[in-house]
Design a protein around this nucleic acid. Structure first.
Lengths: 234, 234
DNA sequence: CGCGTCCTTGAACCGCGTCAAGCCAGGTGG
DNA sequence: CCACCTGGCTTGACGCGGTTCAAGGACGCG
């Protein structure tokens, strides 16, 4: 999977930053950053707030979602260790989505000016950022396709594949490394909690997953991926 | 609107590159680029092809879409003068979508190596690219939200708002600066040609648009934007 | 034990995609 | 100049998938 280096600023031994991303560059500006620690459910930033900088996730799970007072919220992105939040910082704008911690999280805040300076003085850093953006953009474009063409079965499968891709599965317990309610899964898949339940029934019958208490064990991740992949063929 | 500078490499007087984007930097590498001229409907690159470089649109209208042999194709992005195509070039990958000309188009091809070199030697250039990516990413994330939450009426309205944003409206004829079939509009909105027709009926009753022959005149662009904006509130 | 929260399940409704027929405009050939 | 053909647009009817609503169940917590 991802190669990682340990984070020096955090007590947790689960605290890493992706080596292939911003680890070293971040060390250079470490004197000018702020560390924030969030509990599960905390809002890291909120739609409409003025951007003051960019966040690096040192460790933890975060969802970026639209706020919608009534009814569904839509998760547009999942992020974890080493990812960045608040992309549009460069354009001196407002945040367009809410970032909410899905687990206890350690993020590192860097002010816009410092960030811009770092980009301009270090082409290496800017280039890495470009790679990050390019990957993220592709992922998001794919999701546009998925959400406009897939049926519910495929969307729910895709949600689990996406969750696995970003957060991974605990090798012992076989569960995702985040705990999510039906509603939260539905918000990622773009449907309702009831539909998620029904799909989980089907997946269980097909031995792709197993439900124990509130937990969902992923028995056959490949099977779920196949549902997504088979869709692609059409 | 967008400020632009004239393009030196093309006979057409409609040929521009966005000034706030890559104009000057592009001039620096002009000795190493290739100019391509495409007719409406031409495929600029195709899903699965190996990426050899990146394309700058000097002038013209382009859609980036999924290929799907049976049925719907989904447009994930619209692009015009000064935009770039083939983002993932940096990662030495394959193209994930098809790029198809929606009008006669002049694109400029730059090889990956040249492009990377330019990024690394010119932080200014890389930084501008970052801004471009950040904007594009936000736009795409919004589209994920739209496509998973909007109803047909809103999606079709959003398609026209998006088309207006990227290609603009002819001030005299009041029509979009691209000609699109019902199917093509449907592929952007993520629905079927029949539904597009039905929504156009409604929009015409509400005096938002007017259909003359095959043309669609946008009488009240703001009205269409309001449909999209009012949705956002919920 | 009782309460609250989340999950599950069934049933009803409805929006939207699908299918099919008819229409209109432009192009072609007699 | 008209008859015919073709391809895209329009319109109505129908059926399915998915959302919504409501009731019941499981679990955790005080």
């Amino acid at each position: 999977m991802r190669s990682r280096i340990e984070c020096k600023d955090c007590a947790s031994n689960k605290c890493f930053v992706k080596q292939n991303c911003f680890g070293e560059s971040l060390a250079n500006i470490s004197s000018k950053k702020n560390d924030n620690f969030n509990k599960k459910g905390d809002v890291i930033f909120r739609e409409g707030n003025t951007m003051r900088g960019i966040y690096f996730i040192m460790h933890g799970a975060v969802k970026v979602a639209t706020s919608s007072p009534i009814g569904r919220e839509q998760v547009v992105r999942l992020a974890s260790d080493g990812d960045i939040l608040g992309h549009r910082v460069l354009g001196n704008d407002k945040y367009y989505f809410n970032a909410i911690a899905l687990s206890d999280t350690h993020v590192c805040f860097v002010e816009t000016s410092v960030f811009k300076e770092t980009c301009l003085s270090s082409p290496e850093f800017a280039y890495r950022l470009l790679l990050f953006y390019a990957l993220e953009l592709r992922r998001t474009e794919l999701r546009v396709k998925y959400h406009s063409q897939m049926n519910i079965r495929e969307k729910v499968a895709e949600a689990f594949v996406y969750l696995n891709e970003i957060f991974g599965i605990d090798p012992d317990k076989k569960t995702l490394n985040v705990e999510l309610s039906r509603k939260e899964i539905a918000d990622i898949a773009g449907t309702t909690p009831e539909q998620v339940t029904r799909q989980l029934n089907d997946f269980e019958e097909e031995k792709l997953i197993l439900r124990t208490k509130r937990d969902i064990q992923i028995l056959n991740a490949e099977g779920l991926e196949n549902i997504v992949r088979n869709y692609k063929i059409n």
